[in-house]
Design a protein around this nucleic acid. Structure first.
Length: 520
DNA sequence: CGCTTTTGACCCGCGC
DNA sequence: GCGCGGGTCAAAAGCG
C-alpha cells in the first residue's frame, strides 16, 4: 500500500477515510489523522514510497468549501477514488480491510491472479499518469507563484525608482495605467456587488500616492472638492505638505469618495498578541501622531503612521486589551505604497491577504455582510469558540488572534525557532512576521494542510529565507485567489516544491487565527 | 537642529 | 440640533 500512490492510510483502523471519505464533509478527526498525502517523486523507487514525516500532508481537513474546490483538485479526488476502487476490485475486499491489501493479493486463487495482475498493471499506468499530472500541476503553480513574485518585485522597483526619479511623471502615469486597468477590471468583476476591499484599498492608496494625469485633468472641478481636506487627511495627509511629489488636490467624484475612499479606510486587520512591549515589532517604521482614551478601556489607544515613505497611507492603532492587559491589540489599516523590507513584507502581505480573504472571495460577500458569524463558524471551525463578533465596530475587521497558550510559550523562547535580531532581547516578543508565520500555518491548516511536525530545519538560520519564501508564497496564493482551494493548491505546491523546509509547526497546534468580523 | 512624542483642540459621523 | 466618541491635526515639549 502506498507504493508511490501519493496517498496512503497511516491508520489502518480507519481505512475508510481513504476509500470514500477523502474529501467527505463528515470525516471524524480519527479518520483525518489516518489519511496522509505525500508528494510523489517520480525518481523514487516504489519501495521508498513511505513518506517521510515532513512530506506528509494531512488532507482530512480538505472538506472546507467543497463546492469551491477547483476542477484540478476534483479531478485528483476522482482519480484517487478510481484507483481505490481498482484496489477493491483486485482484492475483492471492502475499504474496511484494505490494510491487508497485499495479503489479499497473495491469497487470491490462481484464476483471479492474472486478472489481479492486469488490474495492478492498469493501476500502475494510472499512477504514472497521475504522477505526470502532479508534476505538471506543480510546474504550473510554481510558474504562477514566480510570476506573482516577479510582478511584485517589478512594482516595488518601479515605486523605488519613482521616489528617486527627478521626472516621475512618466512612471506615475505608467503606474496609474496599471492601477486604472486593475480598477476597471475590479469594477467589472464586482458590478452590483461588494468589491474586494483589499484590492480597492491597494488601488486607492496607489492613487493617492501617485499623482496621475487623470486626477490632474480632473483637478479643474473644484466644486467636487467639498471634503478635500478630509480626504487628504484620511488618505494621505502628507500629500498636502510641501513634499516633492506634491500634487493638485485630489478630485474624486462622489462615487469615488463614497466607494473607493470609504472602502479603503474601512478594511482593517487586527492582530492580538501577548506582549509586554508597548508595540509589536513588525518590520515597519512608525511615527506616533496621536493618543486617545477610548471608551470602555482604561488603557490609551495610540495612533501610528508608517514613515518609511512619505505619503504612505498605512496607519495602525495599538491598544491593550481591557480585559487582559498582557494582550496587545494592533490594528492595521491601508496598504503600503512603497517597497518593504522582507520582515515588513511578510507582515504587510499577510495582513493584506487576510483583508482580501475577508470580503473578496473566500465566501460570498453577502454572507460576510449579512452574517458575521459565517466567518467565525466556517472559516475557523477549529477555533470558532474563540471567534469574537462585535457589532459595534464600524469597519469590517479580520482579527488574527495569537494569544493562545502556545504563543506565550513561543514568546518566551523566540530564538528557539529563529535567531532573534540583535536589538531584540529575550523578553521582547518576536517580530510580527514570526508570529504571522503561525497564522499562515494555521491558515494552511484551515485549508486542509497539515504541516510536518518536524521543525528542525527552522532552527537553523539558513533556512529562514526558505521559510519566508513559503510564507510569502502562501500569502501570495491567498492574495492572488482568495478561493480557498486555489490557495490550498498553491500552498501545497510551495510546500511540496520546497519540502526541505517545512513550516514551523512545533507546538502550534493550539495557535489560532481568529477571523473576526466587525460589522454594522 | 531635526525628529519624535505629547496633548489639547478640532472635525466628523452617528445616535438620540 | 445636540452630545458623544473616534480619529486626526498641529503646536509645544522632549530627546539625541
Amino acid at each position: 500500500m502506498g507504493k508511490g500512490w501519493g496517498l496512503t492510510v497511516e491508520n489502518p483502523d480507519h481505512p475508510a477515510a481513504f476509500v470514500g471519505g477523502v474529501f467527505g464533509k463528515n470525516l471524524s478527526s480519527d479518520m483525518k489523522a489516518g489519511l496522509i498525502m505525500f508528494p510523489v517523486n517520480s525518481s523514487c523507487k516504489e519501495e521508498q514510497a513511505t513518506p517521510s514525516s515532513d512530506q506528509r500532508l494531512a488532507l482530512g481537513e480538505l472538506d472546507f468549501f467543497p463546492e469551491k474546490r477547483s476542477p484540478l483538485v476534483r479531478k485528483l479526488e476522482d482519480s484517487y477514488a478510481d484507483v481505490n476502487t481498482g484496489l477493491q476490485l483486485v482484492t475483492g475486499k471492502t475499504g474496511s480491510d484494505q490494510s491487508s491489501v497485499d495479503d489479499g493479493i497473495c491469497r487470491s486463487d490462481t484464476g483471479n491472479h492474472k486478472r489481479a495482475k492486469y488490474e495492478v498493471a492498469q493501476l500502475q499506468v494510472e499512477l504514472e499518469r497521475m504522477n505526470a499530472e502532479n508534476h505538471r500541476l506543480r510546474g504550473m503553480l510554481t510558474q504562477i507563484s514566480n510570476s506573482y513574485t516577479g510582478l511584485k518585485m517589478h512594482l516595488a522597483a518601479l515605486m523605488q525608482h519613482q521616489q528617486n526619479s527627478t521626472t516621475p511623471n512618466s512612471l506615475q502615469e505608467h503606474l496609474h495605467d496599471i492601477v486604472d486597468r486593475s480598477s476597471k477590471e475590479k469594477k467589472q468583476e464586482n458590478i452590483g456587488g461588494l468589491s474586494s476591499p483589499g484590492g480597492v484599498n491597494k488601488l486607492v492608496s496607489e492613487r493617492y500616492s501617485n499623482s496621475t494625469s487623470e486626477e490632474k485633468s480632473e483637478s479643474g472641478c473644484p466644486e467636487l472638492l467639498p471634503r478635500s481636506k478630509r480626504i487628504g487627511r484620511d488618505a494621505s495627509p502628507e500629500l498636502d505638505d510641501g513634499a516633492p511629489n506634491k500634487v493638485p488636490k485630489l478630485c474624486f467624484t462622489k462615487h469615488d469618495q463614497s466607494t473607493e475612499v470609504a472602502t479603503m479606510r474601512k478594511v482593517r486587520v487586527s492582530v492580538r498578541a501577548r506582549s509586554e512591549a508597548p508595540m509589536i515589532p513588525d518590520g515597519c517604521q512608525w511615527r506616533k501622531y496621536g493618543q486617545k482614551m477610548a471608551k470602555g478601556n482604561p488603557y490609551p489607544r495610540a495612533y501610528y503612521k508608517c514613515t518609511i515613505a512619505l505619503g504612505c497611507p498605512v496607519r495602525k492603532q495599538v491598544q491593550r486589551c481591557a480585559s487582559d492587559q498582557t494582550i496587545l491589540v494592533t490594528t492595521y489599516e491601508g496598504t503600503h505604497n512603497h517597497p518593504l523590507l522582507p520582515p515588513a513584507m511578510a507582515m504587510a502581505s499577510t495582513t493584506s491577504a487576510a483583508a482580501d480573504m475577508l470580503l473578496s472571495g473566500s465566501m460570498p460577500s453577502s454572507d460576510v455582510l449579512m452574517n458575521p458569524n459565517f466567518l467565525a463558524i466556517n472559516m475557523v471551525p477549529c477555533s470558532s469558540n474563540m471567534a469574537t463578533i462585535s457589532a459595534s465596530a464600524p469597519f469590517p475587521t479580520v482579527t488574527l488572534d495569537l494569544t493562545q497558550s502556545s504563543n506565550s510559550t513561543q514568546f518566551e523562547r523566540p530564538q528557539a525557532h529563529f535567531p532573534a535580531p540583535l536589538h531584540q532581547n529575550i523578553a521582547t516578543p518576536p517580530p510580527i512576521p514570526q508570529i504571522l508565520s503561525q497564522v499562515m500555518h494555521n491558515q494552511s491548516k484551515f485549508s486542509g494542510l497539515q504541516m510536518s511536525k518536524d521543525s528542525q530545519s527552522l532552527q537553523h538560520p539558513q533556512h529562514r529565507p526558505l521559510f519566508e519564501e513559503t510564507l510569502s508564497a502562501t500569502t501570495a496564493a491567498i492574495r492572488a485567489d482568495p478561493n480557498f482551494t486555489s490557495a490550498l493548491a498553491a500552498a501545497i505546491s510551495s510546500i511540496i516544491g520546497g519540502a526541505s523546509h517545512p513550516n514551523n509547526s512545533k507546538g502550534n497546534a493550539n495557535t489560532t487565527a481568529t477571523h473576526t468580523l466587525h460589522g454594522k
